[in-house]
Design a protein around this nucleic acid. Structure first.
Length: 160
DNA sequence: GCCAACGTTGGC
DNA sequence: GCCAACGTTGGC
C-alpha cells in the first residue's frame, strides 16, 4: 500500500552494467555513479519507502523492467573519492561531497518488460518524462497516475 | 556507429 | 555573464 506522501521515481541503468536481475540477486544495492546535478537533486528528494521504476537504458529494447524501493536516503557516493573508480571526481572535496547516492532494494521483476515504444504508444503516458524526446535524465520523478498505468501495463504484482 | 539533445567547461 | 567547444546520454 502507498504510504502517505510517498514519492515515485524512475531510475535508469544499463543492463550490461547493472540489471534488474542483478538487483534481484543482490537484494539491495548502492545507486552509485550519478554525475548529473539534476539527477542528483532528485535523489536528494527521495525518502525511505519511495518506489521507483527500474528502467533498462541502452538495451534492446529499452524499457521498464521492474520495481525497486528506496531503503536509504541520499548520502555521499564514495566512488567520487576513489581514484581508481570510473566515477572518480577530482573536483569533489571530502568536506563538501559533490555527489550523492541512495540505496535501493529489489521489489519486483516484471514478467515482461514494458518497452519504451509501448510506453510511447500509450496516450495516457504522453506527458510522462521518459517518453519525451531527448529525455536523458537518469533519475526522474514519475506522477502517480503514470506510475499506476505502467504497473497495470506490466500486470505487476505491486500496486499503490 | 550515428547523431540529436542536452549539460558542462573555460576563455574572454 | 556569454557562448563556443566539447563531452555525455541514449534511442535508433
Amino acid at each position: 500500500m502507498a504510504k502517505r506522501g510517498m514519492k515515485l521515481w524512475l531510475m535508469k541503468s544499463e543492463p550490461d552494467v547493472y540489471s534488474i536481475n542483478d538487483l534481484r540477486r543482490d537484494g539491495t544495492e548502492h545507486w552509485e555513479g550519478v554525475r548529473n546535478y539534476q539527477a542528483r537533486n532528485f535523489m536528494r528528494d527521495m525518502a525511505e519507502g519511495d518506489l521507483a521504476l527500474f528502467y533498462h537504458s541502452n538495451a534492446k529494447p529499452p524499457g521498464v523492467a521492474g520495481i525497486c524501493r528506496i531503503v536509504r536516503e541520499a548520502y555521499p557516493d564514495p566512488t567520487q573519492f576513489d581514484r581508481k573508480s570510473e566515477y572518480y571526481d577530482p573536483k569533489s572535496k571530502k568536506d563538501d561531497p559533490r555527489w550523492s547516492m541512495v540505496d535501493v532494494e529489489f521489489v519486483e521483476k516484471f514478467a515482461e518488460e514494458v518497452s519504451l515504444q509501448t510506453l510511447k504508444d500509450e496516450p495516457a503516458l504522453e506527458e510522462m518524462r521518459v517518453t519525451q524526446k531527448g529525455s536523458r535524465l537518469s533519475v526522474q520523478p514519475v506522477e502517480k497516475k503514470h506510475f499506476k498505468k505502467v504497473l497495470k501495463m506490466a500486470n505487476a504484482q505491486t500496486n499503490l
